[in-house]
């Protein structure tokens, strides 16, 4: 693997770290299997791309993308909480609907961002090579996001959210409005995922409706790889695990694709991902089996 390919993998891993943290919030904190992310990731990319082309400041465009992602999360939460649709199904409905929404937002399946100003533009001319600038810049954002989410989850408000996912009956008995927590958690989760989408569009120079396919599996892969490597040792470690998992996942994929011996091509990615996630899910069980 070349140096550029390596840092490219790190960069993509960092972009998807936002997805991983979002998935962690939904799946692990709220215990809400949320597939909305397959729609909110390209939604974030689409909104950002269209706004940037319209001349909007790229930071503002990314913020709007987050709001759009939050709205998507709220729709899923509403289908589940208000209309009592099973959580998984509710999220699939939103995801499917978002495919059409994303096409409407962009007006076509693919929007290019060539030569447009992005959040990264100011940093390109500072002497560092581009393939270092991007992961460095995104890395800083990831660190900020991890710290914010960590402090939130260890606050009184965050504790209420964690209790909602872990023991809703107890949470209610402690005065936590569990429905509100689901709305809030799904909004934050999908806002993070949409921000990942916004970064994806800005670093790769395009937004594409199909770029969301399998986002959930990639996010879940990152979460599981992180858990497998670092174990359950508190919120901060878990969040770091998400980031680490996301990066390692991309490096593993890059390695698998660049090893000619395996004869893999880019279109095998989804299969490799599914195999990797399955492996990560089965591994702890195998280990336990071995110990017993």
């Amino acid at each position: 693997m070349s140096l550029i390919a390596f840092w490219g993998a790190v960069e993509l891993g960092l972009v998807y770290a936002f997805v991983a943290v979002g998935v962690f919030l939904a799946f692990r904190v709220l215990d809400f299997p949320d597939l909305t992310v397959d729609g909110s990731f390209p939604l974030g990319a689409a909104v950002t791309a269209v706004l940037i082309i319209a001349g909007v400041n790229p930071w503002l465009a990314a913020c709007v993308a987050m709001v759009a992602g939050a709205a998507a999360g709220i729709v899923t939460a509403m289908l589940n909480v208000r209309f009592k649709i099973l959580n998984l199904l509710a999220s699939i409905l939103t995801m499917i609907a978002l495919f059409s929404v994303n096409l409407r937002v962009m007006g076509k399946p693919n929007v290019a961002l060539i030569n447009a100003d992005t959040m990264l533009s100011p940093f390109y001319g500072l002497g560092l090579r581009d393939f270092y600038v991007r992961p460095l810049f995104i890395g800083v954002l990831v660190v900020i996001a991890v710290i914010v989410v960590w402090r939130f989850l260890e606050s009184d408000a965050g504790l209420a959210m964690r209790a909602t996912g872990a023991n809703a009956r107890m949470a209610r008995a402690q005065g936590v409005d569990t429905n509100r927590q689901i709305y809030l958690g799904m909004a934050i989760s999908n806002a993070l995922v949409a921000f990942g989408g916004a970064l994806f569009a800005q670093t790769n120079g395009f937004a594409d409706v199909t770029s969301g396919v399998g986002t959930i599996v990639v996010g879940l892969a990152a979460v599981i790889i992180g858990e497998t490597l670092l174990g359950a040792r508190g919120i901060l470690i878990a969040l770091i695990g998400c980031v680490l998992g996301s990066i390692l996942y991309r490096i593993a994929i890059q390695l698998a694709l660049s090893t000619d011996m395996l004869g893999l091509q880019a279109s095998d990615l989804n299969f490799v991902t599914a195999a990797l996630v399955t492996f990560a899910l089965v591994l702890p069980r195998l280990r336990r089996g071995g110990a017993a």
Binding site: R151, S155, A157, Q174, G175
Partner: peptide, 13 residues
């Protein structure tokens, strides 16, 4: 969690 039962929960640690 229990110490804040019935109160507003803020962003303080």
């Amino acid at each position: 969690l229990a110490a804040k039962r019935g109160e507003a929960r803020g962003l303080a640690a």
